[in-house]
Structures are given as C-alpha cells and as structure tokens.
Design a protein around this nucleic acid. Structure first.
Lengths: 189, 189
DNA sequence: AGGTGAACTCTACATATGTAGAGTTTTTCC
DNA sequence: GGAAAAACTCTACATATGTAGAGTTCACCT
C-alpha cells in the first residue's frame, strides 16, 4: 500500500514532466506510462479519465510547490537564528533565483495547467489553487525586502515574476537575477 | 486572387481565436474550418501540414500586433501635434490598458505559440518573432514614461506586462491598470 | 496449499486527427 | 462558347487517443 502511493506519485511526476516537455497535448495515458517507465495501462488504471489525471497532477504540483516554499521558510529561519536577519534575507534571495533554474518544469507545468483550467470546466479551481501556491514564496520574499506592501503591490510583484519566468522558460528572456527582483520588490513593495 | 488572400486571412484569424479559446490541441484542421465557417477541407487545402498552419498563424499574429502598435504610435503623434506631449502620453496610457481587454485572444494565442515554439523545432523562430512584436509597444511606452532606460529595465518591464497579462487572461488576476504600469515603469525605467 | 479479492496489465474499439489525393466547381483566356 | 487551369471540396485511410473491460498476477488469510 506504500507501493501504491509510490506508483501514483511516479505517475504524477511523469505527468508533470510530460506537461512541461510536450505540453498539454503531449500528455496522453500512453505517453505518461512510457515517461514513468511503467507498463502500458498503468496511468489509465490509476486515472481512468484524463481530467482526473490532470487534476491529480495539479494537486501534486501544488504540494511540490508548497513543500519547496516550506523548505525555503525553514531555511530562512535557520539562517536568521544562526547569522541574523541579513543572512536570512541573503539566503532567500539566492534560493529564489536558483529555484528559477531548478524548477523550470514545475513552472511550465503550472502554466499549462492554469491555461487548461481557464478553458475546461472539469478543471475549474485548479488554476486558483496553483496561483495561490506559486504566490506564497513571492509574498514571503516581498515581506522581507519591501518597506511596506499592499494587495496591489503583491499582484504586481507576482505578475512580474510570472512574466520573467514565462519568458525565461520559453527561451525568450534571461534568467531572473537577484538584483532585478530585489530592486523591483524594493521599489514597489 | 484578392479572394484568396481573404480566405487565407479568415483561416488564420480563426486559427488564432481557436488557439486562444481551445489551446494548441484545440487547433485541428477541421476545427478551424468550422470556426471560420468554411467547408471542411479548406484549412487543409491552404495549409497541408499543421506546422505550416501554426507558422502562418504566428506570422499573421505578428502582423496584427505590429499594426496595432503602428496605430498606437500614429495616434500618439497626432495627439502630440494637436494637444502637446502630455496629451499624447495620456492617450498612450489609456490605449495600452484598454488594449489589454481587447486583445486577450491575441495574447493567449501568443502564449500558446511561444510555448509550442520552445518545444517543436519546426516552429523555431516563431517565439522570437512574437516576442519582438509584443515588446515594441512596451518599449515605446517605457520611453515615454521613464526618465532613462536600459536593456535590463526593458526586460523587466516586458516581463511585468507579460505576467500581469498571463494572470489576467487566465482569470487569475486583475486587469492591469494605467496607474500600475505607469508607477512601475517610472520606478524602473 | 489453495482460494479469494485486490492490484495490475493487456486487448479491443469507437472516435478524432493529420494528410493524401480524387473529384468537382469556378475562373480565365481564346 | 468551350477548353485548360486554378481553386476548391469531399472522401478515404493510417495512426493515435480516450476509455472500457477482460484477463492475469500477486498478496494475504485460513
């Protein structure tokens, strides 16, 4: 039964990478089977309907993003406890930009799912959930860096990060830099 | 032969709305025929390969964006000539945010095509072209509003607009406002 | 050991899609 | 008016996909 969870997770991981690498229309039951290295039929067995697969993948993606954010906040707290506030903020700044490189697939999958959610009502809610998950680290970093904030400023900063990331992961723009984010968040927050 | 161009254009328009409303996998030859109100087979006749259809649609989209930008700059020049620089800038500001509402389909189609371009090498180049087209009005507005600019600032502002638009067209964020854009562009430019 | 039920894999099939090409209509030119 | 060419529409078909369900293996209990 632990086995079962592992298999399910393997399928959802494969779904996310498939979403990132081949887009929504690259996600077929068979393609996910293949990407996960599981026998044909496995994905269909766990998720008979495609909408169920995508919904579960979105939830899994939300979990991943949430866990990464938890880890970030934990790391921040540790650095603050050990070396003070400045060190904590520096740590977060470094993590945030290095995460941009690490998490390209997660980001692409989020876009695909958000777009899909806006169009197919079987996926309603998925977009909101992913948006919330993706915003958490932004808000956290903003609080650290900005003098004072507001809902409008948060919208702006979240939009900024999404746009930069979108251009970056599609090869249309440079990787976000810590200077860039810090400057903007300070100017706006 | 004027006919022929019209038909071609109708197909590409339909392809763009189909891209926006149903995503890349909603674009099939038959679906485009239907959306354009043309007999089945028309799209296949004009664009036998799907890659050709998408490439042509991207070029068409680039033209549309370019023409809209030309019109914006023309309107700006007229307003300046008539009522002075301030009036021109005000005009551009209003146009830019009203365009966000008008051009949701164009924006969504651009995202879909940019994502597709990053994955399928038959579509290489398409992403770059669309990025350039979409950046023109941003750079123009930035020049008007900012004290001084730089390539990095342009990246940032372009990213900001893309992110805000992405969230907006997917129902995940508010419509961009003139205040927001102006404030950011001034703070950064 | 053997049976029982769950977990899994494989096969089948209706539908949809890309694409080719045959057939038809319309236009053009004499 | 009529032949030749171009423009268009329709049909066909191989492939891929979602999905159902039959068949198989496996783990566990007695």
């Amino acid at each position: 039964m632990m086995e079962k969870q592992q298999r399910r997770t393997a399928i959802l991981d494969a779904t996310i990478t498939q979403l990132a690498r081949a887009g929504l229309d690259g996600v077929t039951h068979r393609a996910v089977d293949l990407a996960a290295g599981l026998p044909q039929g496995s994905t269909s067995y766990y998720f008979a309907k495609k909408a169920a697969l995508l919904t579960a993948a979105a939830e899994h993606l939300g979990d991943l993003l949430g866990k990464d954010c938890d880890a970030l906040q934990l790391g921040f707290a540790e650095h603050v406890a050990r070396d003070g506030m400045e060190a904590g903020i520096a740590f977060v700044g470094e993590e945030v930009v290095s995460y941009a490189e690490t998490a390209q697939d997660l980001y692409l999958a989020r876009i695909e799912l958000t777009l899909a959610s806006a169009r197919r009502e079987e996926l309603a809610g998925v977009g909101d959930m992913l948006t919330r998950a993706a915003r958490r680290p932004i808000e956290f970093f903003l609080e650290l860096v900005a003098k004072q904030s507001s809902p409008e400023k948060i919208d702006t900063c979240a939009g900024l990060v999404d746009g930069i990331m979108l251009m970056y992961v599609t090869g249309q723009g440079p990787k976000p830099t810590q200077d860039q984010l810090r400057a903007v968040f300070q100017a706006l927050g």
